[in-house]
Design a protein around this nucleic acid. Structure first.
Lengths: 340, 340
DNA sequence: TAAATTCACGAAAACGGTTTCGTGTTAACA
DNA sequence: TGTTAACACGAAACCGTTTTCGTGAATTTA
């Protein structure tokens, strides 16, 4: 890289001190107009840009927010990023995005890198492996260092920090209720293993809705997908039973379910109804289009960055962690019949 | 944030100089074993972490790569990010991701922020508005400052920097050829406005394939989508003509085309064949699934970060910009008949 | 025993800025 | 004419770290 022009260069070249240059560039009243003009002209000519690193070191802040996501090729998470980025930019922050790839080890490493002063605060969603291990020491350490820190979507309750989540229980309830109102009785649930808490919560909502209708949960209707194996095959099993609806906790499971239903010659939504989660492109563009729970990722991102920046900029106050719950909506499409 | 422990604190507390502490922590032979033990124990106890900002300032490098994308809620771009991130991490770099949101102004601003020393190099894909304006001064400036810089996918030829692109002409040719081999004659092309160069190149491939079969390009079969308006409506127009195939330059256009075809009662791939671009989830999960050109975003990301880091780390060499062309594959699925 | 080495550590500069606190010169005032 | 205030600028400290170059004491060598 080309040698950058610094305040020192300007000072030497113009025969003044660095303080004078610094003040002149800030248009300080301490400096005479001629000197300012001369310095500013020179700076402009050589395209002087203040070195951010030096400023960061002096100000003890970076104006950068670290974001750690389990994955990115994923509609929900990329929407959240958008929300975070928009909010961050508005307040003059940039974001540094990293991925854990659902791995505990990578999550720990990434967190270590980010927490050494590279960022002013961190927003993250927990890797599934971490949720499974239940090893949260890296989070505890972060909290004890008092680094501003917010968790979203996949959060861990025992960590005292700000959190932004969707009302997963409510969403699961809404989805199931809608199917019941369609007259469905044998509703399959395609979900994640129970350690992924959002999956567990959506399941609670599912069960709650069934109980309200005096239907006993039938464990054989519940499939916990192991993502390391063939997803479609796992879902196919539940189709061997006599089911009339599917509630899938994400788009991929919903899309797979629909494909299986079609292959079995079932008509959607006449013979079987399908509801997904995450209002992504698959749900929108498949045919029939899929009724889903819209998670409002963008809003989540916005909320997360908002509380984080507040935490960063008003670090005086007593620390009382906030939990923000974003409500989710049922987005009706063609894969379910409208409730009667 | 809690007051961080620094080398100075340790030095003062232990009654030695900062140089001694620094050396002790690096296990230098200059320091006696007892002193080293004492210092290391203390550092460990108080969980000392070297301040990255100070290191960056001293070393004049950040080990951070800036990435600017036009958008993120997009299968191709998020795949590229994955590739970049993986490659960067391997070499000890982190990535700072920003978005231009297809806006010229935001692109310029973001570039300015990143080029003040916050990053060691930049990878980006150009915003569509910039391509339309044809105002590339911000890139020229970057190049003149000799900041390592690579463009991918949406590149601009006149800028002298490393580039990673897919063989768009070849891809367009392949797709069209495949349709022709299926016996299709009236192939609609759903593309972007011509200023988006990837669109223009794919169109060249399309035209080339037609010429080889002595078919004259029929302008009425080509739709240049204006994304600020309703996409579906624009595509519907071309369906008023008697067409037997659609080549869409991205997933969304392909999905929309399929939906329209279905609504018109056309059977896919019997009455009409459809080919998309970008091998994303929509193509995979729609039914029928969509034959597409796979762009290998992950590979592109890997290649981009590889040449960038090479540029950063061997800045001695003479600057001879590289252009890496990634070949793309036709991924056959249900929306076209296999070639006979 | 004098000279040369080795050892263990510290002082200071450097990275690129900002900011506080002088200070010498000139102009205004009494 | 002496005092004061305003003006325009510079010296130096600071942010946290690394690294070069000393340096005094202890040890080895001649």
């Amino acid at each position: 890289m080309k040698q950058k022009i610094t305040i020192k260069t300007i000072a030497k070249e113009l025969g003044v001190s660095t303080s004078t240059v610094s003040k002149a560039l800030k248009d300080s009243h301490e400096i005479s107009i001629e000197t300012k003009k001369k310095i500013q002209a020179y700076a402009n000519l050589y395209n002087y840009k203040p070195n951010h690193l030096a400023l960061q070191l002096r100000n003890q802040k970076t104006k950068v927010i670290g974001v750690i996501l389990p994955k990115i090729v994923h509609h929900f998470f990329s929407t959240v990023i958008m929300g975070i980025e928009e909010g961050a930019n508005k307040k003059g922050y940039n974001i540094m995005v990293c991925f854990s790839n659902e791995s505990y080890k990578k999550e720990v490493e990434t967190l270590k890198v980010l927490s050494n002063g590279s960022v002013d605060g961190i927003i993250m969603s927990v890797a599934s492996e971490t949720l499974k291990n239940k090893d949260f020491n890296h989070f505890k350490e972060l909290v004890s260092e008092e680094i501003p820190f917010v968790l979203f979507d996949r959060v861990v309750d025992e960590i005292l920090c700000d959190k932004v989540v969707v009302d997963d229980v409510g969403a699961g309830f809404k989805a199931t209720k809608h199917l019941l109102e369609n007259g469905r009785k044998k509703i399959a649930l395609i979900t994640t293993p129970n350690h992924v808490n959002v999956g567990a919560l959506r399941r609670q909502g599912y069960e709650k809705a069934l109980i309200e209708e005096y239907i006993k949960t039938d464990k054989s209707l519940i499939v916990e997908i192991d993502e390391t194996k063939d997803i479609k095959k796992q879902i196919e099993k539940v189709f061997e039973q006599d089911i009339d609806a599917v509630f899938a906790v994400n788009e991929i499971y919903a899309a797979n379910s629909m494909r299986i239903a079609k292959e079995k010659g079932l008509s959607i939504p006449n013979d079987i109804s399908i509801i997904g989660f995450t209002d992504g492109l698959i749900s929108e563009y498949s045919s029939p289009s899929i009724t889903t729970i819209a998670q409002h990722g963008f809003t989540m991102g916005q909320q997360a960055i908002e509380v984080l920046i507040e935490r960063i900029e008003k670090e005086s106050e007593v620390y009382k962690p906030k939990k923000i719950v974003i409500s989710s909506d049922l987005k009706l499409r063609e894969s379910t019949k409208p409730s009667s």
